[in-house]
Computed example of a mutant assay.
Amino acid sequence: MPAAVLPALTPYLATAGIGWLYYRRIRRSFGRQRWQPKRTLARLLLVSLVAVSLIGAAVFLPHVGVSIGIGSVLGGVLGVFALKYTHAQVTDGQRFYTPNPWIGGGLSLLLLGRLAWRWSQGALAGGSAQAAQQANPLTLGIAATLIAYSLVYTSGLLLRMRQLAPAQTPSD
């Protein structure tokens, strides 16, 4: 592939990659899911790092601090509510959980809707010089909601799955 072609394809490859990530995120909101503890711990660590950066944004960008705080509280409440309606079970020695599709699907639609709105307004087209101007309170409030929800839900799910009977190995 010529060197000039790759930079021209970069926006399309990045868009396809982001689309794939959203597809996987939305897919995890529906139906019975196999428990994967290592992946869950990795997700919890990554989301914790993003939460630290949101806290930094709340400290260094005071005009978004209130929206980040409100979003965090709302996300935490939604996470607890989602845990209440998540079913966990052991079947054939494997751990599974079934998330509430309405809560996860609603949050996914909220995220996609906000991204579509920001994109339609041209907010995602600028370079890094516009990043400080794009610190929109609504966007960061929604991000805080999603991050807090993910932290609470993933932590609670981790605890609930550990309380289930251990997956039994088949005897020889």
Rank of each mutant, 00 (worst) to 15 (best):
Q130E: 15
L124I: 04
D92H: 11
Y153H: 08
N136M: 02
R114Q: 15
G113H: 01
R24V: 14
Q133A: 05
V90H: 00
T40E: 04
M1H: 09
A51Y: 00
Y97A: 04
Y23E: 07
F60H: 12
I147S: 02
L159V: 13
A116D: 01
S128V: 15
A132V: 11
A143I: 01
L45N: 03
L146Y: 01
V64G: 05
A42Q: 13
Q33C: 01
T91M: 12
A116I: 05
P101I: 13
T10R: 11
L112F: 01
S150K: 07
L41V: 12
A82D: 09
V50I: 14
Y97Q: 09
R160Y: 04
V59Q: 11
R95G: 10
L74T: 15
G113P: 00
G76K: 01
T10S: 12
H63P: 00
G126H: 01
D92F: 03
Y149G: 06
D172W: 07
P37V: 12
L109I: 09
W35H: 11
I55E: 08
V73E: 02
G71D: 14
D92V: 13
G76Q: 08
I103C: 02
A16Q: 04
L158N: 09
S67A: 03
T40C: 05
K84T: 15
A82H: 02
G104P: 07
F60Q: 15
T169G: 11
S48Q: 05
I70E: 08
R28K: 11
Q94D: 15
Q36D: 14
G122S: 08
S48D: 04
W35I: 06
A58T: 03
F30M: 09
L83W: 01
P62C: 06
Y85N: 09
I26V: 15
A132W: 07
L138W: 07
G75F: 04
F60I: 15
A135Q: 03
L78N: 15
G31Q: 03
P62S: 04
F96M: 09
Y22C: 15
K38S: 14
M1E: 09
Y153V: 02
Q134C: 02
L46W: 00
S67G: 00
T40D: 06
L49H: 05
F60C: 14
I18S: 06
R162P: 03
S150R: 10
A129Y: 08
R39S: 15
A42W: 08
A16D: 06
Q89D: 07
A135I: 02
V73G: 06
R32F: 04
